[in-house]
Amino acid sequence: MPQLDAIYIFCSNKSRHQEWTRNWKKVKGVHTNIDEVCLALQLTVKQCNQDSIAVSFITEKQMALTDNLNQLEPTFMYTQIFKEILLDMEYGKQAIKQFTAYCRNNNAM
């Protein structure tokens, strides 16, 4: 399945599943602890976000017509900063509950 990028196995017996998963390139890990799975997913998402940074090519003529190429669209910039903060910061289960409650109460999607 080309649209499937990574598989993480969550089980109670790590040694039982590690052997057969070596044959599957998309299996990224076998975990017995849910926190380990979350950490692995966070790292993969962070890497995926870094890999998908937009690049655009413009001609010299277009560059002459553009006033300031160093200025980013503010919405894009704030979204990127927000994603970095969420992926890098340490937070507990209570913080996650509060954040999801806030998003639900304020129709944030």
Rank of each mutant, 00 (worst) to 15 (best):
P2Y: 02
A6T: 07
Y8E: 03
Y8S: 02
Y8T: 07
I9F: 02
C11P: 01
C11S: 11
S12T: 11
S12G: 10
S15G: 04
S15T: 12
R16I: 07
H17K: 03
E19C: 03
R22K: 15
N23I: 00
K25I: 02
K28F: 08
G29D: 02
V30Y: 03
H31D: 00
I34H: 08
I34E: 09
D35L: 09
D35N: 11
E36Q: 13
L43C: 06
L43V: 02
L43W: 08
V45L: 14
V45A: 08
Q47L: 11
S52N: 15
I53V: 15
I53S: 12
I53D: 11
V55L: 10
S56K: 13
S56P: 01
I58M: 12
T59G: 06
T59L: 09
T59Q: 04
M63Q: 13
N68L: 04
N68P: 00
L69T: 06
L69N: 00
E73H: 10
P74K: 05
P74G: 03
T75H: 02
M77N: 07
M77F: 15
Y78S: 07
Y78N: 12
K83M: 14
E84A: 10
L86K: 01
E90L: 07
Y91H: 09
Y91T: 02
G92P: 03
A95Y: 13
A95N: 15
A95G: 06
K97M: 13
K97L: 14
T100K: 10
A101M: 04
A101V: 01
Y102V: 00
R104G: 00
N105L: 03
N106F: 02
N107G: 01
M109D: 05
